[in-house]
């Protein structure tokens, strides 16, 4: 059972995402801020993090940058309510970060799960690819 961390400042959305991933047999964790998420990240090392961008305190982009420095095999999937959000250039081409942006509302949550799995696999695989 893989662990997924839901980072969102809105409780209703965290609950929905938790419920969805729980039903899909994930072990969901949650954090309402980037700082909190970083703490959890250090302790639990989840396979994926669902990142909201607009957050109180540290923003989603900065959170990913900080998290990447921990050199964890974690996938980061961005899910934001801002339609005009673009992935910052320094985060493009980083395997851990999903290039597909999810804009809320997500019409088919199943699509989200598929993408999470895809990036998780990509992050896990590099060694085998190197071999």
């Amino acid at each position: 059972m893989k662990t997924i961390l839901i980072l969102d400042d809105e409780e209703v959305l965290r609950d929905v995402f938790m419920a969805f991933f729980e039903d899909r047999l994930w072990q969901p964790l949650q954090a309402s801020s980037a700082e909190e998420a970083l703490e959890i990240l250090k302790k639990e090392a989840p396979a994926a993090v669902l990142v909201d961008i607009r957050l109180p305190g540290m923003g989603g982009d900065e959170f990913i940058r900080t998290a990447l420095k921990l050199k964890l095999e974690t996938a980061f999937i961005i899910c934001t309510g801002s339609p005009d959000y673009f992935l910052p250039p320094d985060l493009i081409e980083i395997p851990n970060v999903s290039e597909r942006l999810f804009i809320k509302p997500i019409m088919q949550l199943e699509d989200l799960e598929k993408e999470v799995l895809r990036v998780v696999q990509r992050v896990e695989k590099p060694e085998s690819e190197n071999e």
Partner: peptide, 23 residues
């Protein structure tokens, strides 16, 4: 552009909840 984010979040709460509900 200013409104979209504010609408999208509650809309996500509603629609995604309905999605999970249906599931």
């Amino acid at each position: 552009a200013g409104m979209a984010h504010e609408i999208n979040n509650p809309l996500a709460g509603m629609m995604q909840t309905a999605n999970v509900l249906s599931n």
